[in-house]
Nucleic acid binder design. Structure first.
Length: 486
RNA sequence: CGGGGCGUGGCUCAGUCCGGUAGAGCGCUGCGUUCGGGUCGCAGAGGUCCCCGGUUCGAAUCCGGGCGCCCCGACCA
Protein backbone atom coordinates (compact mmCIF):
# COMPACT_ATOMS: atom_id res chain seq x y z
CA UNK A 1 0.00 0.00 0.00
CA UNK A 2 1.22 3.52 0.74
CA UNK A 3 2.98 4.61 -2.40
CA UNK A 4 0.98 2.22 -4.55
CA UNK A 5 -1.62 4.19 -6.36
CA UNK A 6 -3.52 1.04 -7.24
CA UNK A 7 -5.38 -0.93 -4.65
CA UNK A 8 -4.69 -4.63 -4.36
CA UNK A 9 -7.25 -6.21 -6.65
CA UNK A 10 -10.17 -8.12 -5.20
CA UNK A 11 -9.31 -11.23 -7.16
CA UNK A 12 -5.74 -11.21 -5.93
CA UNK A 13 -6.50 -10.83 -2.23
CA UNK A 14 -9.99 -9.79 -1.19
CA UNK A 15 -9.10 -9.29 2.42
CA UNK A 16 -6.13 -7.04 1.60
CA UNK A 17 -8.35 -5.13 -0.81
CA UNK A 18 -10.87 -4.59 1.99
CA UNK A 19 -8.31 -3.33 4.47
CA UNK A 20 -6.76 -0.97 1.96
CA UNK A 21 -9.98 0.47 0.66
CA UNK A 22 -11.33 1.19 4.13
CA UNK A 23 -8.17 3.08 5.02
CA UNK A 24 -7.58 4.81 1.72
CA UNK A 25 -11.17 5.86 1.18
CA UNK A 26 -10.88 7.36 4.66
CA UNK A 27 -13.81 5.48 6.10
CA UNK A 28 -11.93 4.61 9.26
CA UNK A 29 -8.52 4.28 10.83
CA UNK A 30 -6.90 2.18 13.50
CA UNK A 31 -6.86 3.85 16.90
CA UNK A 32 -4.24 3.64 19.65
CA UNK A 33 -6.63 1.38 21.53
CA UNK A 34 -6.23 -2.26 20.61
CA UNK A 35 -9.15 -3.46 18.54
CA UNK A 36 -10.94 -0.12 18.50
CA UNK A 37 -11.28 2.05 15.44
CA UNK A 38 -11.82 5.67 14.61
CA UNK A 39 -14.70 6.21 12.22
CA UNK A 40 -13.74 9.11 9.99
CA UNK A 41 -16.20 11.63 8.54
CA UNK A 42 -16.66 9.76 5.28
CA UNK A 43 -17.55 6.56 7.13
CA UNK A 44 -19.56 8.31 9.80
CA UNK A 45 -21.53 10.15 7.12
CA UNK A 46 -22.64 6.80 5.74
CA UNK A 47 -23.61 5.67 9.23
CA UNK A 48 -25.65 8.83 9.74
CA UNK A 49 -27.72 8.07 6.66
CA UNK A 50 -28.25 4.51 7.85
CA UNK A 51 -29.28 5.80 11.25
CA UNK A 52 -31.76 8.29 9.97
CA UNK A 53 -33.40 5.79 7.63
CA UNK A 54 -33.72 3.16 10.35
CA UNK A 55 -34.77 5.65 12.96
CA UNK A 56 -37.64 6.77 10.74
CA UNK A 57 -38.68 3.17 10.14
CA UNK A 58 -38.59 2.37 13.86
CA UNK A 59 -40.72 5.37 14.67
CA UNK A 60 -43.18 4.56 11.90
CA UNK A 61 -43.71 1.20 13.59
CA UNK A 62 -44.37 2.70 16.99
CA UNK A 63 -40.96 2.61 18.63
CA UNK A 64 -39.35 5.37 20.65
CA UNK A 65 -35.73 6.10 21.48
CA UNK A 66 -34.30 6.08 24.98
CA UNK A 67 -30.88 5.74 26.53
CA UNK A 68 -29.60 3.34 29.17
CA UNK A 69 -26.22 3.38 30.97
CA UNK A 70 -22.92 2.18 29.58
CA UNK A 71 -22.05 0.34 32.78
CA UNK A 72 -24.03 -2.65 33.95
CA UNK A 73 -23.73 -4.24 37.40
CA UNK A 74 -21.91 -7.54 37.12
CA UNK A 75 -24.70 -9.33 38.97
CA UNK A 76 -27.21 -8.31 36.29
CA UNK A 77 -25.23 -9.89 33.50
CA UNK A 78 -24.83 -13.05 35.53
CA UNK A 79 -28.51 -13.52 36.16
CA UNK A 80 -29.48 -15.21 32.88
CA UNK A 81 -27.45 -18.38 32.62
CA UNK A 82 -27.01 -18.76 28.88
CA UNK A 83 -26.52 -15.03 28.55
CA UNK A 84 -23.52 -14.90 30.86
CA UNK A 85 -22.07 -18.09 29.41
CA UNK A 86 -22.22 -16.56 25.96
CA UNK A 87 -20.71 -13.23 26.85
CA UNK A 88 -18.29 -14.00 29.69
CA UNK A 89 -15.17 -14.35 27.52
CA UNK A 90 -15.58 -10.98 25.89
CA UNK A 91 -16.51 -8.73 28.79
CA UNK A 92 -14.53 -5.65 29.76
CA UNK A 93 -15.00 -5.05 33.47
CA UNK A 94 -14.55 -1.91 35.55
CA UNK A 95 -13.27 -2.76 39.02
CA UNK A 96 -11.90 0.59 40.15
CA UNK A 97 -13.48 4.01 40.12
CA UNK A 98 -13.04 7.20 42.11
CA UNK A 99 -9.67 5.99 43.28
CA UNK A 100 -10.91 2.87 45.02
CA UNK A 101 -11.97 -0.68 44.41
CA UNK A 102 -15.67 -1.01 43.63
CA UNK A 103 -17.80 -3.22 45.84
CA UNK A 104 -19.44 -4.69 42.79
CA UNK A 105 -17.69 -4.55 39.43
CA UNK A 106 -19.39 -2.98 36.45
CA UNK A 107 -19.43 -4.53 33.03
CA UNK A 108 -19.04 -2.29 30.00
CA UNK A 109 -22.22 -3.25 28.13
CA UNK A 110 -21.78 -5.92 25.50
CA UNK A 111 -25.56 -5.57 24.96
CA UNK A 112 -28.21 -4.14 27.25
CA UNK A 113 -30.92 -6.71 27.83
CA UNK A 114 -30.27 -7.03 31.53
CA UNK A 115 -30.23 -3.39 32.51
CA UNK A 116 -33.13 -2.55 30.24
CA UNK A 117 -35.43 -5.30 31.46
CA UNK A 118 -34.58 -4.47 35.04
CA UNK A 119 -35.93 -1.00 34.33
CA UNK A 120 -38.98 -2.29 32.49
CA UNK A 121 -39.78 -4.29 35.60
CA UNK A 122 -40.06 -0.99 37.43
CA UNK A 123 -42.25 0.65 34.82
CA UNK A 124 -44.68 -2.12 34.00
CA UNK A 125 -47.50 -2.98 36.41
CA UNK A 126 -50.40 -3.89 34.24
CA UNK A 127 -51.19 -5.15 30.76
CA UNK A 128 -52.17 -1.53 30.10
CA UNK A 129 -48.48 -0.59 30.31
CA UNK A 130 -47.67 -2.98 27.48
CA UNK A 131 -46.24 -3.17 24.96
CA UNK A 132 -43.04 -1.28 25.71
CA UNK A 133 -41.30 -0.53 22.42
CA UNK A 134 -37.94 1.15 22.92
CA UNK A 135 -34.76 1.48 20.92
CA UNK A 136 -31.41 2.92 21.84
CA UNK A 137 -28.51 4.12 19.72
CA UNK A 138 -25.37 3.27 21.59
CA UNK A 139 -21.86 1.91 21.64
CA UNK A 140 -21.11 -1.53 23.04
CA UNK A 141 -17.94 -3.42 23.83
CA UNK A 142 -17.05 -7.04 23.24
CA UNK A 143 -13.42 -7.92 23.74
CA UNK A 144 -12.54 -9.63 20.49
CA UNK A 145 -9.42 -11.67 19.81
CA UNK A 146 -9.10 -10.79 16.16
CA UNK A 147 -10.50 -7.53 14.89
CA UNK A 148 -11.13 -5.99 11.50
CA UNK A 149 -12.30 -2.48 10.75
CA UNK A 150 -16.12 -2.36 10.84
CA UNK A 151 -16.54 -6.13 10.62
CA UNK A 152 -15.32 -6.94 14.08
CA UNK A 153 -14.01 -4.36 16.53
CA UNK A 154 -14.04 -4.41 20.29
CA UNK A 155 -16.15 -1.30 20.47
CA UNK A 156 -18.83 -0.67 17.89
CA UNK A 157 -21.89 1.47 17.34
CA UNK A 158 -25.31 0.00 16.91
CA UNK A 159 -28.97 0.29 17.73
CA UNK A 160 -30.62 -2.17 20.04
CA UNK A 161 -34.36 -2.44 20.24
CA UNK A 162 -35.96 -3.95 23.33
CA UNK A 163 -39.62 -4.66 23.65
CA UNK A 164 -41.96 -6.19 26.20
CA UNK A 165 -45.34 -7.70 25.37
CA UNK A 166 -48.29 -9.29 27.09
CA UNK A 167 -48.32 -12.44 24.99
CA UNK A 168 -45.86 -14.73 23.28
CA UNK A 169 -47.70 -14.26 20.03
CA UNK A 170 -47.31 -10.49 20.13
CA UNK A 171 -43.63 -10.76 20.88
CA UNK A 172 -43.09 -13.24 18.06
CA UNK A 173 -44.94 -10.90 15.76
CA UNK A 174 -42.64 -8.07 16.80
CA UNK A 175 -39.56 -10.19 16.18
CA UNK A 176 -40.72 -10.91 12.65
CA UNK A 177 -41.86 -7.35 12.02
CA UNK A 178 -38.36 -6.11 12.73
CA UNK A 179 -36.77 -8.86 10.66
CA UNK A 180 -38.89 -7.71 7.75
CA UNK A 181 -38.06 -4.09 8.44
CA UNK A 182 -34.33 -4.86 8.42
CA UNK A 183 -34.67 -6.73 5.18
CA UNK A 184 -36.50 -3.83 3.56
CA UNK A 185 -33.88 -1.42 4.85
CA UNK A 186 -31.04 -3.52 3.50
CA UNK A 187 -32.74 -3.88 0.12
CA UNK A 188 -33.78 -0.30 -0.29
CA UNK A 189 -30.98 1.62 1.36
CA UNK A 190 -27.90 -0.58 1.32
CA UNK A 191 -28.78 -2.36 -1.94
CA UNK A 192 -27.54 -5.41 -0.05
CA UNK A 193 -30.29 -8.01 -0.36
CA UNK A 194 -30.15 -10.49 2.51
CA UNK A 195 -31.73 -13.86 2.91
CA UNK A 196 -33.56 -14.17 6.19
CA UNK A 197 -34.50 -16.96 8.49
CA UNK A 198 -34.07 -18.66 11.80
CA UNK A 199 -30.72 -19.36 13.39
CA UNK A 200 -29.82 -22.88 14.43
CA UNK A 201 -29.39 -23.38 18.18
CA UNK A 202 -25.64 -23.20 17.99
CA UNK A 203 -25.74 -19.76 16.37
CA UNK A 204 -28.55 -18.15 18.28
CA UNK A 205 -28.16 -15.23 20.67
CA UNK A 206 -27.11 -16.14 24.18
CA UNK A 207 -30.29 -15.98 26.18
CA UNK A 208 -32.81 -16.03 23.34
CA UNK A 209 -35.48 -18.63 22.68
CA UNK A 210 -34.75 -18.16 19.03
CA UNK A 211 -32.93 -15.73 16.76
CA UNK A 212 -33.72 -14.56 13.26
CA UNK A 213 -31.01 -13.22 11.05
CA UNK A 214 -30.39 -11.29 7.85
CA UNK A 215 -27.51 -12.86 5.97
CA UNK A 216 -25.98 -11.00 3.05
CA UNK A 217 -23.57 -12.38 0.50
CA UNK A 218 -20.34 -10.48 -0.03
CA UNK A 219 -18.44 -10.32 -3.32
CA UNK A 220 -15.99 -12.95 -2.09
CA UNK A 221 -18.91 -15.37 -1.61
CA UNK A 222 -18.78 -15.20 2.14
CA UNK A 223 -21.89 -14.49 4.17
CA UNK A 224 -22.17 -11.59 6.56
CA UNK A 225 -24.60 -11.66 9.45
CA UNK A 226 -26.00 -8.19 8.95
CA UNK A 227 -28.79 -7.93 11.49
CA UNK A 228 -30.53 -10.07 14.06
CA UNK A 229 -33.92 -10.10 15.73
CA UNK A 230 -34.43 -12.24 18.81
CA UNK A 231 -37.46 -13.70 20.48
CA UNK A 232 -36.43 -13.82 24.12
CA UNK A 233 -39.51 -15.52 25.50
CA UNK A 234 -39.70 -14.97 29.25
CA UNK A 235 -36.04 -15.77 29.89
CA UNK A 236 -35.15 -12.28 30.98
CA UNK A 237 -38.48 -11.24 32.43
CA UNK A 238 -38.27 -14.17 34.84
CA UNK A 239 -34.81 -13.16 35.99
CA UNK A 240 -35.74 -9.51 36.41
CA UNK A 241 -39.27 -9.90 37.76
CA UNK A 242 -40.74 -8.21 34.73
CA UNK A 243 -44.35 -9.05 35.57
CA UNK A 244 -47.71 -7.49 34.91
CA UNK A 245 -51.28 -8.01 35.93
CA UNK A 246 -53.19 -9.46 33.01
CA UNK A 247 -56.65 -8.45 31.88
CA UNK A 248 -57.96 -11.48 33.70
CA UNK A 249 -56.26 -10.34 36.89
CA UNK A 250 -53.48 -12.93 37.04
CA UNK A 251 -49.82 -12.06 37.44
CA UNK A 252 -47.79 -12.90 34.32
CA UNK A 253 -44.25 -12.60 33.09
CA UNK A 254 -43.85 -10.33 30.07
CA UNK A 255 -42.51 -11.57 26.72
CA UNK A 256 -39.48 -9.83 25.28
CA UNK A 257 -37.72 -9.22 22.00
CA UNK A 258 -34.43 -7.59 21.14
CA UNK A 259 -32.89 -6.69 17.81
CA UNK A 260 -29.94 -4.82 16.42
CA UNK A 261 -27.80 -3.74 13.51
CA UNK A 262 -24.39 -2.20 13.82
CA UNK A 263 -21.64 -0.28 12.04
CA UNK A 264 -20.74 -3.67 10.65
CA UNK A 265 -23.23 -2.79 7.92
CA UNK A 266 -20.70 -0.32 6.57
CA UNK A 267 -18.28 -3.18 6.04
CA UNK A 268 -21.09 -5.05 4.34
CA UNK A 269 -21.74 -2.22 1.91
CA UNK A 270 -18.03 -2.02 1.14
CA UNK A 271 -17.85 -5.74 0.36
CA UNK A 272 -21.13 -5.80 -1.54
CA UNK A 273 -20.48 -3.00 -4.00
CA UNK A 274 -16.80 -2.08 -3.98
CA UNK A 275 -14.51 -2.85 -6.91
CA UNK A 276 -10.85 -2.61 -7.81
CA UNK A 277 -11.11 1.15 -8.12
CA UNK A 278 -12.43 1.53 -4.59
CA UNK A 279 -15.76 1.98 -2.88
CA UNK A 280 -19.10 2.18 -4.57
CA UNK A 281 -21.58 3.83 -2.23
CA UNK A 282 -25.29 3.45 -2.90
CA UNK A 283 -26.63 6.97 -3.59
CA UNK A 284 -29.04 6.91 -0.67
CA UNK A 285 -26.14 6.42 1.73
CA UNK A 286 -23.54 8.59 0.03
CA UNK A 287 -22.49 11.61 2.09
CA UNK A 288 -21.77 13.27 -1.25
CA UNK A 289 -23.78 12.03 -4.20
CA UNK A 290 -22.32 14.27 -6.85
CA UNK A 291 -18.89 15.84 -6.87
CA UNK A 292 -18.27 18.75 -9.20
CA UNK A 293 -14.76 19.03 -10.60
CA UNK A 294 -13.97 22.36 -12.19
CA UNK A 295 -11.38 22.19 -14.97
CA UNK A 296 -9.31 25.26 -14.29
CA UNK A 297 -7.53 25.76 -17.57
CA UNK A 298 -6.32 28.87 -19.34
CA UNK A 299 -8.15 32.16 -18.95
CA UNK A 300 -11.56 30.77 -18.06
CA UNK A 301 -10.84 29.99 -14.43
CA UNK A 302 -13.27 32.40 -12.83
CA UNK A 303 -16.02 31.63 -15.33
CA UNK A 304 -15.67 27.93 -14.65
CA UNK A 305 -15.82 28.40 -10.89
CA UNK A 306 -18.87 30.62 -11.19
CA UNK A 307 -20.59 28.00 -13.30
CA UNK A 308 -19.64 25.28 -10.82
CA UNK A 309 -21.23 27.34 -8.06
CA UNK A 310 -24.37 27.83 -10.07
CA UNK A 311 -24.63 24.09 -10.83
CA UNK A 312 -24.08 23.28 -7.17
CA UNK A 313 -26.93 25.60 -6.20
CA UNK A 314 -29.29 24.06 -8.74
CA UNK A 315 -28.43 20.51 -7.64
CA UNK A 316 -28.96 21.35 -3.98
CA UNK A 317 -32.36 22.79 -4.81
CA UNK A 318 -33.25 19.43 -6.32
CA UNK A 319 -32.27 17.73 -3.07
CA UNK A 320 -29.00 16.31 -4.40
CA UNK A 321 -26.07 16.19 -1.98
CA UNK A 322 -23.37 17.81 -4.09
CA UNK A 323 -20.06 19.52 -3.49
CA UNK A 324 -17.36 21.26 -5.47
CA UNK A 325 -13.77 20.11 -5.31
CA UNK A 326 -11.95 23.32 -6.09
CA UNK A 327 -8.54 22.41 -4.69
CA UNK A 328 -5.92 24.05 -6.89
CA UNK A 329 -3.01 21.81 -5.99
CA UNK A 330 -4.42 18.69 -7.65
CA UNK A 331 -4.97 17.96 -11.30
CA UNK A 332 -8.47 16.96 -12.37
CA UNK A 333 -7.28 13.42 -13.01
CA UNK A 334 -6.02 13.07 -9.47
CA UNK A 335 -9.40 14.19 -8.19
CA UNK A 336 -11.21 11.66 -10.38
CA UNK A 337 -9.24 8.84 -8.85
CA UNK A 338 -9.76 10.10 -5.35
CA UNK A 339 -13.54 10.46 -5.58
CA UNK A 340 -13.88 7.16 -7.39
CA UNK A 341 -11.95 5.50 -4.59
CA UNK A 342 -14.36 7.10 -2.15
CA UNK A 343 -17.30 5.74 -4.10
CA UNK A 344 -19.14 8.96 -4.98
CA UNK A 345 -21.94 7.92 -7.36
CA UNK A 346 -21.64 10.72 -9.92
CA UNK A 347 -19.04 13.22 -11.01
CA UNK A 348 -19.73 16.38 -12.96
CA UNK A 349 -16.87 18.02 -14.85
CA UNK A 350 -17.10 21.64 -15.87
CA UNK A 351 -14.45 23.09 -18.17
CA UNK A 352 -14.06 25.98 -20.57
CA UNK A 353 -15.45 23.93 -23.45
CA UNK A 354 -18.60 23.29 -21.48
CA UNK A 355 -19.12 26.96 -20.76
CA UNK A 356 -19.15 27.64 -24.48
CA UNK A 357 -21.43 24.74 -25.34
CA UNK A 358 -23.67 25.06 -22.27
CA UNK A 359 -23.04 21.44 -21.44
CA UNK A 360 -21.67 19.36 -18.58
CA UNK A 361 -19.65 16.17 -18.53
CA UNK A 362 -21.31 13.52 -16.41
CA UNK A 363 -19.59 10.35 -15.24
CA UNK A 364 -21.23 7.54 -13.29
CA UNK A 365 -19.16 5.57 -10.78
CA UNK A 366 -20.07 2.36 -12.58
CA UNK A 367 -20.70 2.76 -16.27
CA UNK A 368 -23.83 0.90 -17.39
CA UNK A 369 -23.42 -1.66 -20.14
CA UNK A 370 -23.17 -0.06 -23.57
CA UNK A 371 -22.73 3.52 -22.38
CA UNK A 372 -19.76 5.81 -22.69
CA UNK A 373 -18.12 6.51 -19.42
CA UNK A 374 -18.21 10.24 -19.96
CA UNK A 375 -21.41 11.77 -21.28
CA UNK A 376 -21.57 15.40 -22.42
CA UNK A 377 -25.11 16.56 -21.78
CA UNK A 378 -26.86 19.89 -22.17
CA UNK A 379 -26.45 21.67 -18.85
CA UNK A 380 -30.08 21.79 -17.78
CA UNK A 381 -30.74 18.23 -18.82
CA UNK A 382 -27.73 16.99 -16.89
CA UNK A 383 -28.86 18.78 -13.77
CA UNK A 384 -32.54 18.00 -13.83
CA UNK A 385 -31.99 14.33 -14.62
CA UNK A 386 -29.51 13.72 -11.83
CA UNK A 387 -32.08 12.91 -9.14
CA UNK A 388 -33.55 10.11 -11.22
CA UNK A 389 -30.14 8.96 -12.37
CA UNK A 390 -29.24 8.55 -8.72
CA UNK A 391 -32.32 6.41 -8.22
CA UNK A 392 -31.48 4.27 -11.23
CA UNK A 393 -27.99 3.81 -9.89
CA UNK A 394 -29.40 2.71 -6.55
CA UNK A 395 -31.70 0.23 -8.33
CA UNK A 396 -28.91 -1.09 -10.51
CA UNK A 397 -26.76 -1.79 -7.47
CA UNK A 398 -29.56 -3.76 -5.83
CA UNK A 399 -30.21 -5.67 -9.01
CA UNK A 400 -26.55 -6.51 -9.47
CA UNK A 401 -26.17 -7.63 -5.86
CA UNK A 402 -29.30 -9.77 -6.09
CA UNK A 403 -28.06 -11.38 -9.28
CA UNK A 404 -24.68 -12.09 -7.72
CA UNK A 405 -26.35 -13.63 -4.71
CA UNK A 406 -28.69 -15.81 -6.74
CA UNK A 407 -26.02 -16.83 -9.23
CA UNK A 408 -23.83 -18.15 -6.46
CA UNK A 409 -26.65 -19.94 -4.70
CA UNK A 410 -26.84 -23.70 -5.07
CA UNK A 411 -30.03 -25.55 -4.15
CA UNK A 412 -31.04 -29.14 -3.83
CA UNK A 413 -27.75 -30.42 -2.47
CA UNK A 414 -28.25 -33.92 -1.07
CA UNK A 415 -25.01 -35.13 0.34
CA UNK A 416 -21.89 -34.10 2.11
CA UNK A 417 -19.90 -34.74 -1.07
CA UNK A 418 -22.11 -32.45 -3.11
CA UNK A 419 -21.87 -29.79 -0.45
CA UNK A 420 -18.10 -29.91 -0.60
CA UNK A 421 -18.21 -29.82 -4.37
CA UNK A 422 -20.47 -26.78 -4.29
CA UNK A 423 -18.08 -24.83 -2.07
CA UNK A 424 -15.07 -26.01 -4.03
CA UNK A 425 -16.60 -24.62 -7.19
CA UNK A 426 -17.28 -21.22 -5.67
CA UNK A 427 -20.76 -21.38 -4.22
CA UNK A 428 -22.00 -18.75 -1.78
CA UNK A 429 -25.23 -19.98 -0.24
CA UNK A 430 -25.91 -23.71 -0.41
CA UNK A 431 -29.32 -25.17 0.46
CA UNK A 432 -29.62 -28.67 1.88
CA UNK A 433 -31.82 -30.73 4.11
CA UNK A 434 -30.96 -31.15 7.78
CA UNK A 435 -31.93 -33.60 10.45
CA UNK A 436 -31.59 -31.00 13.20
CA UNK A 437 -28.65 -32.86 14.67
CA UNK A 438 -25.93 -30.41 15.84
CA UNK A 439 -23.26 -33.01 15.15
CA UNK A 440 -23.83 -32.48 11.43
CA UNK A 441 -23.10 -28.78 11.88
CA UNK A 442 -19.90 -29.59 13.73
CA UNK A 443 -18.69 -31.92 11.03
CA UNK A 444 -19.39 -29.50 8.21
CA UNK A 445 -17.83 -26.64 10.11
CA UNK A 446 -14.71 -28.60 10.82
CA UNK A 447 -14.25 -29.98 7.34
CA UNK A 448 -15.67 -27.30 5.05
CA UNK A 449 -15.45 -24.23 7.29
CA UNK A 450 -19.08 -23.52 6.53
CA UNK A 451 -21.90 -23.03 9.00
CA UNK A 452 -25.66 -22.99 8.90
CA UNK A 453 -26.49 -19.37 8.30
CA UNK A 454 -30.23 -19.76 8.56
CA UNK A 455 -33.18 -22.05 8.35
CA UNK A 456 -34.61 -20.03 5.50
CA UNK A 457 -37.85 -18.12 5.85
CA UNK A 458 -40.78 -19.07 3.67
CA UNK A 459 -39.94 -16.75 0.79
CA UNK A 460 -36.46 -18.30 0.48
CA UNK A 461 -37.37 -21.98 0.68
CA UNK A 462 -36.68 -24.17 -2.32
CA UNK A 463 -39.66 -25.23 -4.36
CA UNK A 464 -39.43 -28.82 -3.29
CA UNK A 465 -38.14 -29.42 0.19
CA UNK A 466 -35.25 -31.85 0.58
CA UNK A 467 -35.94 -35.38 1.81
CA UNK A 468 -32.59 -36.31 3.24
CA UNK A 469 -30.30 -34.64 5.70
CA UNK A 470 -27.06 -33.54 4.07
CA UNK A 471 -25.29 -36.06 6.27
CA UNK A 472 -27.05 -38.74 4.26
CA UNK A 473 -27.92 -40.72 7.38
CA UNK A 474 -31.40 -39.58 8.21
CA UNK A 475 -34.45 -37.78 6.97
CA UNK A 476 -34.45 -34.03 6.75
CA UNK A 477 -36.69 -32.10 9.08
CA UNK A 478 -35.89 -28.67 7.68
CA UNK A 479 -34.07 -27.00 4.83
CA UNK A 480 -30.97 -25.02 5.83
CA UNK A 481 -28.59 -22.59 4.13
CA UNK A 482 -24.88 -23.11 4.48
CA UNK A 483 -22.12 -20.60 3.81
CA UNK A 484 -18.67 -19.62 4.83
CA UNK A 485 -19.17 -16.60 6.99
CA UNK A 486 -17.46 -13.55 8.43
C1' C B 1 -2.93 -19.17 24.23
C1' G B 2 0.10 -22.23 20.11
C1' G B 3 2.84 -21.32 14.87
C1' G B 4 5.18 -17.44 11.62
C1' G B 5 6.81 -12.36 10.63
C1' C B 6 8.03 -7.32 11.69
C1' G B 7 9.60 -2.66 14.60
C1' U B 8 14.32 2.89 10.57
C1' G B 9 11.14 10.70 8.57
C1' G B 10 3.69 11.20 8.04
C1' C B 11 3.24 6.31 4.83
C1' U B 12 5.66 1.95 2.29
C1' C B 13 10.23 0.17 2.80
C1' A B 14 16.01 -0.40 1.66
C1' G B 15 20.29 -0.52 4.70
C1' U B 16 21.46 -5.33 9.38
C1' C B 17 24.56 -11.14 6.88
C1' C B 18 30.13 -8.36 6.52
C1' G B 19 29.93 -2.23 12.58
C1' G B 20 32.59 3.50 10.03
C1' U B 21 28.92 10.85 9.24
C1' A B 22 21.08 7.67 8.32
C1' G B 23 18.78 6.63 2.70
C1' A B 24 14.83 6.03 -1.39
C1' G B 25 9.87 6.46 -3.26
C1' C B 26 5.36 8.53 -1.99
C1' G B 27 3.33 12.36 1.04
C1' C B 28 4.18 17.42 3.14
C1' U B 29 5.82 23.13 2.65
C1' G B 30 7.20 27.29 -0.76
C1' C B 31 7.70 29.25 -5.76
C1' G B 32 6.76 28.61 -10.76
C1' U B 33 4.36 25.60 -14.48
C1' U B 34 0.27 22.60 -15.82
C1' C B 35 -4.93 21.41 -15.50
C1' G B 36 -10.88 17.23 -20.11
C1' G B 37 -7.93 10.33 -16.33
C1' G B 38 -2.84 9.96 -10.92
C1' U B 39 1.23 17.40 -14.53
C1' C B 40 6.25 18.85 -14.43
C1' G B 41 10.50 21.57 -12.49
C1' C B 42 13.32 23.93 -8.68
C1' A B 43 14.05 24.76 -3.55
C1' G B 44 12.96 22.96 1.40
C1' A B 45 11.20 20.83 6.16
C1' G B 46 11.05 16.40 8.63
C1' G B 47 14.36 10.66 12.07
C1' U B 48 15.15 9.23 20.39
C1' C B 49 16.81 3.79 13.68
C1' C B 50 10.82 0.35 19.58
C1' C B 51 13.10 0.42 24.82
C1' C B 52 17.01 -0.95 28.46
C1' G B 53 21.70 -2.95 29.13
C1' G B 54 26.37 -5.07 27.14
C1' U B 55 30.67 -5.61 23.51
C1' U B 56 33.61 -1.90 20.71
C1' C B 57 37.74 3.72 19.39
C1' G B 58 32.90 3.56 17.00
C1' A B 59 26.31 0.07 17.01
C1' A B 60 20.26 0.90 12.98
C1' U B 61 23.86 -3.21 12.24
C1' C B 62 26.84 -7.79 16.96
C1' C B 63 25.16 -10.03 22.08
C1' G B 64 21.43 -10.33 26.32
C1' G B 65 16.78 -8.87 28.20
C1' G B 66 12.14 -6.39 27.69
C1' C B 67 7.96 -4.05 25.04
C1' G B 68 4.77 -3.37 20.95
C1' C B 69 2.44 -4.61 16.37
C1' C B 70 0.86 -7.69 12.21
C1' C B 71 -0.43 -12.44 9.94
C1' C B 72 -2.15 -17.80 10.50
C1' G B 73 -5.13 -21.38 13.92
C1' A B 74 -9.40 -22.24 18.68
C1' C B 75 -14.46 -17.81 20.32
C1' C B 76 -17.66 -13.80 17.97
C1' A B 77 -22.81 -8.22 15.89
Amino acid sequence: MGNNKQLTSQSEDFSAWYNEVVLRAELADHSPVRGSMVIRPWGYGIWEHMQSALDTMFKETGHENAYFPLLIPMSFIEREKEHIEGFAPELAIVTRAGGKELEEPYVVRPTSETIIYSMYAKWVQSYRDLPVLLNQWANVMRWEMRTRLFLRTSEFLWQEGHTAHATAGEAEEETLLILKLYRKFMDEWLAMPPITGLKSDSEKFAGAVNSYSCEALMKDKKALQAGTSHFLGQNFSKQFELTFQSEAGTEEYAWNTSWGVSTRLIGGVVMTHGDDNGLVIPPRLAPTQVVIIPILAGEETSGVLEKADEVLGRLKKLGVRAKIDSRDNLSPGAKYFEWERKGVPFRVEIGPKDLQNEQLALVRRLTPEGENRKAFLPETEAITKLPEKLEYFQDDLLEAARTRRDDSTVRGVNSFGELKEAFDSGAGFVYTGWSGNPAVEDTVKEQLKATIRVLPGEEFLSESSPRKCVSGDTDSVTEVVWARAY
